[in-house]
Design a protein around this nucleic acid. Sequence first.
DNA 1: CGGATACTTGAGGGTTGTCAAAATATGTGG
DNA 2: CCACATATTTTGACAACCCTCAAGTATCCG
Lengths: 243, 243
Amino acid sequence: MAAALTALVDRLARATPLSAEDRNAIEALPATVRTLEPNASLLYPGDHSQTCCIVLSGWVGSFKLLGNGQRQVLAFYVAGDLPDLQSLYLPTTDYGICALTDASVALVPHGPMRALMVRRPDVAAALLRETLVSGSITREWVVGLGRRAGPQRMAHLFCELYTQQRAAGLVDTEGRCPLPISQTVLADALGLTAVHVNRILKELRGQGLIQLRQRTLVILDWPRLSALAEFDPTYLHLDRQGP
Amino acid sequence: MAAALTALVDRLARATPLSAEDRNAIEALPATVRTLEPNASLLYPGDHSQTCCIVLSGWVGSFKLLGNGQRQVLAFYVAGDLPDLQSLYLPTTDYGICALTDASVALVPHGPMRALMVRRPDVAAALLRETLVSGSITREWVVGLGRRAGPQRMAHLFCELYTQQRAAGLVDTEGRCPLPISQTVLADALGLTAVHVNRILKELRGQGLIQLRQRTLVILDWPRLSALAEFDPTYLHLDRQGP
DNA sequence: CGGATACTTGAGGGTTGTCAAAATATGTGG
DNA sequence: CCACATATTTTGACAACCCTCAAGTATCCG
């Protein structure tokens, strides 16, 4: 359990300077680690969660289901992300969280989490910042789902995921980064069908913009891909605050 | 200027009990009131705002523009809403805010706003709660834009706006509430064209579900409308907290 | 009354969905 | 290592939804 939460410390420190005391306070949180297989649920809509979840490894998604069985993915979460921080303030969750790959998460009870935020205002501010950035990303998804056609929408998502992973040091020198999700999941995130996602992928591949094989995304032509997507990374708020 | 911020006090008190001190502290904030004509901008993408905006009257919207001139509305704001609270923590705004009707807003400088939140933790928690509820609504918009077909999507938005205004006491005994926006704005919120919005309205009207005239929405058949939308108000988090 | 804005309707085309099936990849047990 | 079962990806044909363009009607406001 010790050092399990370094993923969170690293994430927060990326945007906000944290003192050694802040780091220690985070790593001292009582956390239960859970490993998850793909598709395993962590949280169901309507649950009253008593813990906050921190992704340690793998990919996790939040989603909502519709009456006819359709699914909409709301966000992707990777190491250091907090999919349900809001459960601290809004007891009833309105969405589900499940593992998209083999994953591990830390579960921290609400009590110690709240205590940490009271004792360590800088940590509270950093967590609040993460929440606001998540909201900003969700708004950009609204724009994509509302106003971007399929190819542009997919290109934009790839630009987003690529940029996020580059900030996390997960992109290699050849423009490759992990994208360990099926076309079905991609479709549920993009508001399309899996069949159509497949056709758009073929199109982007045919234009020499990307490759997507073996759970790896390769950006072959960033200038043209980001131009197609009209990608502006401002909304990711990756600029570091403070000293 | 005095009492301008009662709209905010009333809004926060709807979900969170506030002490008299809390209320007084909010109403003592230094606020500049601005009146806006329809379409007047309050905030442009890329701005570095030094104030927080509180809607006092009228309807305000946040939005993003795309390269080809398309617009996506991200949220509607009415009296008591805070369209840009996040500017306190994320200095670069990535969206625009403009008046959708004649409107008035209060502008509170970041300094006093921050000071209030430090001195009055309950107010800070109430403001955080509002931010989280906004995020929850944005996620529901993602679901609608991604997975609901036109009529269902529009029905869902009407259910949402109606339920919110009922909580604010703005619905009369005949199921009427204000909806003072053009079909073009509605289209920009629903990710559709104005022409198609018009056709869907005709359809919903023809089925005897709603009326929309003279800036007023009338819910004629709530059971069928909410069933069509598969509307579940959980995500609005209207349940009052605490005593 | 005149001009501007908003709403309404029609015709036709493009994007995306649905249904179905084949091809490929992945995983498991013998 | 192979044989098999399963999941994922790929492709085709067709239909539905939504968009575009265009024109006409209603409404608002000075």
